[in-house]
Amino acid sequence: MSTAVPEPGPKDAVTTHAAAGPDVDVVAIAPDPEVAAGIIEDTPLEDIFDAGTTAQAQEIISRYPMSRSALLPMLHLVQSVQGYVSQEGIAFCAKQLDLSDAEVSAVATFYTMYKRKPCGEHLVSVCTNTLCAAMGGDAIYKRLQTHLGSEEEPLGHNETAGTPNEPGSITLEHAECLAACDLAPVIQVNYEYFDNQTEDKAVALVDALRAGKKPAPTRGAPLSTFKGAELQLAGFFPEDEAAYRRDVDGPSQAVETLRGAKLAQERGWVAPVAQDVPLPEVEKK
């Protein structure tokens, strides 16, 4: 007896694939060429990515000996314009880098930092990896889900409260390790750290963002918008030196991070000097 779709075991299936569920954006993941062509025909690339963006793309490309190496920052550039990587954004990158849409899509869909749906003004990432989860990260994420959504319809992963790209809109995501275990639980807003969070602190943080405020991160540069952060990740900063320093300068370490190094310095602890050890003889072939 056959099964409708593939299942573990020896039974044959009527079809060789399982249909996507209603929450899967099949076009965004692997666009039908005809659909993609229709999208691009309806909205010419020049209407989205103007001459200034094209010039920035060419500047990015000039940084690399091989043009295709510029794809990652190019995708950040696209997100700084649209707030996500659209089909038009994929076509723009492909055209600038002389790649196929499929080659660009393969990269854009591999990394979670490239969003396939329009993002809010702010991206709020809650670390839910082991230590943060144990210290309250899971509870913070669930609290924000209901606070930004409702008890009946909590906001889901990579879903947006408010209208994407509009002021006060927030996209919520649960993130894997944010590399700040010594300050768990942590949240990032547009990739800037807010350490030692609690449920109430997290709620106050997103409420401030929705009200148009920009709370100071625990460490790092002043808070930007998601699009602003994406432009920086593409490698573009203010030309004015004071504005540049304001955007990039900020303490990146915390007291907890440096505690071990400080103790070692106070107590005169040093790592043993590495000694050169001869490599073992390898039998000649």
Rank of each mutant, 00 (worst) to 15 (best):
V78Q: 02
A102E: 15
L77F: 10
L99Q: 13
L99A: 07
S80T: 07
C93W: 08
D101P: 03
E88P: 00
S86H: 08
V78L: 05
A94K: 07
K95W: 08
K95M: 14
F92H: 02
A108R: 08
S80Q: 05
Y111W: 14
D101C: 06
L71D: 02
V81S: 04
L71K: 03
G89P: 00
D98P: 05
T112L: 11
L72P: 04
Q87F: 06
E103G: 06
C93T: 09
V81M: 06
P73C: 05
S105I: 05
A70P: 04
D101M: 09
L97V: 13
K115L: 12
A70W: 03
A70S: 11
S100N: 14
A108N: 08
H76V: 01
K115H: 13
A108F: 07
T112I: 13
R116A: 10
I90A: 01
G83F: 06
A94N: 09
A94H: 09
S69H: 08
L71Y: 07
F110Y: 15
Y114C: 13
K115R: 13
S105Y: 01
M74A: 05
T112W: 08
L97C: 10
L77Y: 07
C93L: 10
S69Q: 10
S80E: 04
Y114Q: 12
E103C: 08
L72Q: 09
V85F: 03
R116Y: 08
Q87D: 12
S100Y: 13
V85S: 00
C93R: 06
S100V: 12
A102C: 12
V78T: 03
M113Q: 15
L71R: 01
K95D: 15
S100C: 13
V104C: 00
F110W: 14
V81A: 04
D101N: 10
Q87E: 14
M113G: 11
E88D: 09
V85Y: 02
S86N: 09
V78F: 04
S69M: 12
T112V: 15
A108G: 10
S86F: 06
R116W: 09
Q79T: 03
Q79I: 03
A91F: 03
G83I: 05
S69C: 05
L75K: 03
V107G: 07
T109W: 09
F110G: 12
L99C: 07
L77M: 10
G89I: 01
P73A: 04
Q82T: 13
G89C: 04
L75H: 04
K95A: 15
K95F: 10
V78W: 01
E103K: 10
